[in-house]
Design a protein around this nucleic acid. Structure first.
Length: 362
DNA sequence: AAAAGAGGCAACCGCCAGCGC
DNA sequence: AGCGCTGGCGGTTGCCTCTTT
């Protein structure tokens, strides 16, 4: 039988890009009533949009606190690691980057990171064969998880399944960041040549953002109440800014943030991302602080990516942040620290009777 | 300057899970 | 228990912009 589509243009529902007027209608309504109850929004606001479209528009673009523009190397590194751990679970990955939407992360992965990773692998070392989606030729985490779900089906084995998933994810992350020393040294050498010859990897820090920003995004910094000739993205930004309220501060670039770069959404009770905000705020602060303390002046783009991908040695966690050599040390991220405990956990799990990678590989 | 191609990204589509009736 | 509705998620599409020729 099948349900009729929610966004049916035959019943007058509009599709395509949102207009400033539609955004203001939606934003005004949500500011007054809070997000949720999406079904009632089209009728309440008079918007000729389906509820689903309204929800997407809000969560992806109008919601306060969304960070636009290019991803920092810290964010990219985190995404790469999390993708290795979680697979293409963009919503889960987005929960670690509170200012980015899952759609944004997904797009960035598909358009930028897969290419960078492919270049890293083909031009600066060839440890893995990256597939079209950026995963390695070895079983991807998601594939592993799916296989595990198939193999381990009974209820009584649920914990075992979970542990197997975790082990596989760790293994995948191990592969991605290439922690074994041989790989590390090889990759370092190749990266050096990459830095001087191709310069094909382009990771922009904040200082270079404004220069590399496309015109339409530069225009996004225009003040509210723009003329009709202003590209619409500027209105989107401004609506978002407008919604952030009077607690915001204005930066030199004209964008507004609260003091910690976070926006607390009192009304978003049914938003998973926001409900875990307290947890990831501390984590994000860790990432942010590591970014601000990084010395990027004399570090090439390739070097930075190399550090993020390969300069991790689980046996040297204590010395990671000490800066013992000339290269900039990137502090451990959550997945990296998670990985660090891999060996210890494996022993514990074997004692407890959980499956390990070695078990599942048979 | 114009056309073609490539890249980026907003938005849509289909599927699924959870919930209430 | 079954059904319908809603919200959430990941994959994909198509338009717009930028770059190259």
């Amino acid at each position: 039988m099948g349900r009729p589509p929610l966004c049916d243009t035959k019943i007058g529902m509009k599709k395509g890009p949102w207009t400033p007027e539609e955004d203001i209608l939606l934003a005004t309504y949500i500011q007054q009533h809070g997000p949720g109850n999406w079904k009632s929004i089209p009728t309440s606001t008079g918007l000729l949009r389906c509820s689903k479209s309204c929800r997407l528009r809000w969560t992806n673009y109008l919601r306060p606190g969304i960070k636009r523009g290019e991803f920092t190397e810290q964010e990219e590194s985190l995404i790469i690691h999390l993708q290795a751990v979680l697979g293409n679970r963009w919503a889960a990955i987005a929960s670690y980057l509170p200012q980015r939407t899952d759609n944004d992360i997904k797009n960035h992965w598909n358009t930028h990171l897969t290419k960078k990773l492919r270049k890293v692998q083909t031009g600066c070392g060839d440890e893995h064969d990256f597939n079209r989606d950026g995963s390695t030729s070895s079983p991807s985490p998601s594939t592993n998880l799916d296989q595990t779900r198939t193999i381990v089906g009974s209820k009584g084995q649920w914990e075992r399944s979970l542990q197997t998933n975790a082990d596989m994810a760790r293994q995948a992350l191990y592969e991605v960041i290439s922690i074994d020393h041989t790989t590390h040294h090889k990759s370092t050498t190749n990266f050096s040549s990459c830095s001087t010859s191709t310069a094909s990897i382009s990771i922009h820090d904040n200082s270079s953002y404004n220069n590399s920003m496309p015109n339409r995004k530069q225009q996004a910094l225009a003040p509210l109440a723009t003329t009709s000739t202003t590209p619409y993205v500027s209105d989107t930004e401004n609506i978002s800014r407008w919604l952030q309220g009077s607690n915001s501060t204005t930066t030199t670039e004209g964008t507004k943030h609260n003091h910690q770069g976070f926006v607390h959404h009192q009304h978003h009770n049914n938003d998973d991302i926001l409900s875990s905000e307290t947890a990831f705020e501390s984590f994000y602060r860790l990432c942010s602080s590591s970014t601000t303390t990084q010395t990027t002046t004399n570090v090439s783009d390739c070097d930075l990516l190399e550090q993020n991908l390969f300069n991790y040695d689980p046996s040297k966690e204590g010395s990671q942040s000490s800066g013992s050599n000339n290269t900039t040390q990137v502090p451990l991220s959550m997945p990296e620290k998670w990985l660090l405990d891999y060996d210890t956990l494996q022993e514990d799990h074997q004692q407890a009777g959980f499956l390990t990678l070695a078990d599942t590989a048979d």
